[in-house]
Simulated assay, not measured.
Amino acid sequence: MKELIGTGVALITPFTKDLQVDVDGLKRVVDFNITNGIDYLVVLGTTAESATLTDNEKALVVKTIQEANAGRVPLVLGIGGNNTQAIIDELQSKDLSAFAAILSVSPMYNKPTQEGICQHFAAIAKASPKPIILYNVPGRTASNMLPETVIRLAKDFENIVGIKEAAGDMVQAMRLLRDCPSDFLVISGDDMVTLPMVLAGGAGVISVIGEGFPAEFSKMVRLGRERKVDEAYKIHNSLMPAIDFIFAEGNPAGIKAVFKKLGICGDTVRLPLVGVTDSLRNKIDAFVDQMY
């Protein structure tokens, strides 16, 4: 899965002020990221506000991104949840031919045991026609997928090819890097620790901040992979304030504020999310002005 090494971005879903999918805005977001050097796009992840989209809207988002991408970079599709059979049904009914892999989040709310998590992904792996990237994000799921569970899945299923690791725990990441098969992709899902994870041997990132600053963030990841540490950390340090800003009042409200300032799309989010406060918007706007 060399095509998924480097910088992937978890695409937002832009909305118009009347809460419809902003197709033109989404096309501009895709083009902005591709022309500024990202390596692949993640479609219908958490950052896309997928939980608030209807099936018809999800189909529209997929169609729009495929058309805007026009085969330029690989695509990864988010298919996950806390109903194992529903995920299997979706995998078996959807046309996945345009996608290099699927990204599947660890079950949320149910709080399964490690054995339950393992059996969940084992069932998905047996049903999936595409390679699978696991997604561990305890801050959202209230359940941490432990390294031993990931290692077991990586060794038992050839089509489980990587993990988006978003626990923000470098010790956990280092255990994955040490003990998973050598061709297993350990991908950062936490923008603030992306560079140290890459320098420790990680495959790259699926990023939120990289979506708003694709040239800078993808360059940082490339420099990290080339072991140009001082140059990479210079970019990392310059982006640290923005990483804090975009998550301060929830994702994707923060990154949408970046896109509004850039003039690429609006910053409307759907309830239960709300837009950023004026004080945070002022900080984001000032940072964007400084960068561009």
Rank of each mutant, 00 (worst) to 15 (best):
A173R: 06
G212I: 05
V193G: 00
G210H: 05
M170C: 07
S207V: 02
V198C: 03
A166E: 12
G189D: 00
V161Y: 12
R222P: 01
M197Q: 13
V221I: 13
C180E: 11
M170F: 13
A167D: 14
M170A: 13
R225Y: 08
G204N: 04
E231T: 06
E216N: 09
M170I: 15
G168Q: 07
E211C: 13
A166N: 14
R222C: 05
I163K: 12
M170E: 12
L177N: 05
K234E: 14
D169L: 06
C180G: 11
K228Y: 00
M174Q: 14
S207H: 01
S188D: 00
G189A: 00
L195C: 03
F184T: 08
S218Y: 06
S182I: 13
R227M: 11
L195M: 09
V193T: 14
I187K: 01
G202F: 02
A173Q: 11
L195E: 08
S188M: 00
F213H: 07
V221D: 05
P214D: 09
R175C: 11
P196H: 09
I160Y: 02
S218W: 10
L185P: 12
M197H: 03
K228F: 01
L177P: 06
M170N: 11
L223H: 05
Q172F: 00
K164F: 15
V208D: 02
V198M: 02
V205N: 10
A167W: 03
S218T: 14
D169R: 10
A203Y: 04
A200L: 08
V208T: 10
L185R: 11
G189K: 00
I160R: 07
G202A: 05
A200T: 02
G168I: 01
S182W: 11
A215L: 14
T194A: 03
R222V: 09
T194E: 01
E226M: 11
M192R: 06
G162D: 02
D169T: 07
I209E: 12
R178Y: 07
E226Y: 02
S218L: 08
G189W: 00
A203T: 08
G168D: 04
A232Q: 09
E216D: 12
G224R: 06
G210M: 09
A203E: 07
I209T: 15
D183L: 03
E165K: 03
E231M: 04
D190W: 00
A215Y: 13
A215I: 08
P214G: 08
A203G: 09
L176A: 06
P196V: 07
V171L: 14
Q172K: 06
R222Q: 12
G212E: 04
Y233K: 14
E231H: 05
S188V: 00
M197P: 00
P181W: 09
G162C: 03
D169A: 08
A173Y: 07
E231P: 02
V171Y: 12
G212N: 10
G210E: 05
R178K: 15
G202H: 09
E211T: 14
A173G: 12
M220D: 12
D191W: 03
V229Y: 08
I160S: 05
V161P: 11
